[in-house]
Simulated scan of single mutants.
Amino acid sequence: MRASFSFLDADIQTALSGSQLTLVDSQERKGMSAMRVRVEGESMSPALRPGDWLVVRRRARVRPGDVVVARLPGDSATMIVKRAAWADGDGWWLESDNQRAPGRRDSWDFGAVSASLVVGRVLFRYWPPRRGALRRAGH
């Protein structure tokens, strides 16, 4: 793996999305290729759990089955963590792994998400350690 990631030590802000509360680095500087995200909420269980910390590669190529971070349609200040199910002419269909999670919001609620709202692809979970690798759906 190339060591080209820059981790921001900036202040952290809270971005709310129903039960998908995520903490995202508040500064999005040009040239930064990665960001860190903390997951809260159960919508991505069992793959992701509240308290998991993720490394997200900005503007990375997305394939069906990848876990991505996107801006919530209609509220671009809010970021969500979802699985990219498929792409169509309108953008990406993003789904929760746990459709029964309280407060979950995904493409079943707001439709396909424009590719311009997809911030990046989750590369790996770095916290907590010893919790297995995050895998693409179907692998």
Score class of each variant (00 low, 15 high):
D52E: 05
E42L: 10
R100Y: 09
R63G: 02
G41S: 02
V56R: 06
W108N: 12
R61G: 07
V119Y: 01
E42N: 12
S116M: 05
W86A: 14
L54S: 05
G31F: 07
G138L: 10
L72G: 00
M79L: 14
S96C: 14
D11R: 15
W93K: 08
S4T: 11
R121N: 04
M1K: 13
R29L: 10
E95C: 04
M44V: 04
V118Y: 02
S4G: 15
M79H: 13
A133V: 14
W127I: 01
E42Y: 10
R38N: 05
Q13M: 04
E40R: 02
V118C: 08
P102L: 09
W53F: 08
W127Y: 15
V81C: 09
D97T: 10
R130Y: 11
V56I: 13
A85R: 11
V69G: 03
P64T: 08
S45G: 01
R29I: 07
S33N: 13
V24P: 00
V56M: 09
V62T: 12
A60V: 12
R36H: 11
I12N: 02
A137M: 05
I80D: 00
S6D: 08
R2C: 01
D25W: 01
V118W: 06
G120W: 04
L16Y: 00
V67L: 10
A34H: 14
Y126N: 01
G51V: 06
D52V: 05
R49M: 12
S43Y: 07
N98E: 13
R130D: 13
R38T: 13
A77E: 05
G132W: 10
D66C: 04
W92M: 04
R131E: 11
A77H: 04
V24D: 01
H139I: 00
L16E: 00
R136C: 06
L117N: 06
K82I: 02
P102S: 11
L134K: 03
D88F: 03
K30Y: 13
L21R: 02
Q13H: 07
S76H: 05
R2V: 06
S17N: 12
A137T: 06
G91W: 04
N98M: 10
S45N: 11
G132M: 12
W53K: 13
G89I: 01
V113L: 06
I12Y: 02
G89F: 11
H139E: 15
R2G: 02
V55T: 07
R29G: 06
R61E: 15
